[in-house]
Design a protein around this nucleic acid. Sequence first.
DNA 1: CTATGTGCAAAAGTTTTGCGTAAGA
DNA 2: TCTTACGCAAAACTTTTGCACATAG
Lengths: 140, 140
Amino acid sequence: MDRIQTDMRTALAAQGQRWTRAREVVLAFLEGERMPVSAKEVFKKVRLTGINLASIYRSMDLFLEKGVVDCVDSPGGVRRYELSDRFRPHHHHVVCRECGSTQDVAGCGVKGLEERAAQSTGFKILSHQFTFVGLCPDCV
Amino acid sequence: MDRIQTDMRTALAAQGQRWTRAREVVLAFLEGERMPVSAKEVFKKVRLTGINLASIYRSMDLFLEKGVVDCVDSPGGVRRYELSDRFRPHHHHVVCRECGSTQDVAGCGVKGLEERAAQSTGFKILSHQFTFVGLCPDCV
DNA sequence: CTATGTGCAAAAGTTTTGCGTAAGA
DNA sequence: TCTTACGCAAAACTTTTGCACATAG
């Protein structure tokens, strides 16, 4: 068992929440991925474990709440999840307009804009999503 | 009839496509909005015209294809539409994590990053979506 | 043991599609 | 007139929820 899972287990135990098979499977899968994945994609790839799709959504909600994963709302209307900035360098994404495939773009380049946005809108800014939309090499 | 509608009508006519009541109603509505709206929001506000929700989606698809509107994929899984950069200053958005309300954030601040993203990923970059996620004054 | 989480199935919500008809040009 | 687009209804998809049962602690 690796560090993220140990941390997660401890954090959950502190609040009477449990480290279950579904949560372990989902988190382990996310740790092995380099790109954001949708709930359905996780479901298909862990099908042999018998974990239910609803449980994957519920696990993702828990991980989001704990700050262990971040989500990306992609053009195309499918939500994708990945390990959060706490465990990976902060970065952004490029999504293919045709096939929906997603890749990381290293770096940020937009830090410092949050404060300006907060001032001009009155919102309390919690995070940002910055996504390039384009065509992947296969779809050009 | 204003300029955008005239342009649109001409562009459609050139390809054997028609300027219909549904398209006129949807485009006119978008021209009157300052913030991105979902298909359902348009539908509710133009209900008295009898325009069908499916026709609103179809009109939006057409306008997207013609570059007359842009879409924003918001956290929460609802797609919103607004007049494109061709008719409004380029800008970005802030979305409330709780209620989904959306506001413009003036300016860009991320121009010049597209080329770097293209180089590092091999994608052809067509556009970008930059969204701040936070809490609106009502939801704080 | 006991409360929490899961599987299953149904529901909810958004977006798409097929088909017969209305209506632009 | 003749093709395009619309209305309607159903379907397709993603995500959420209720409930009885399983299971982690």
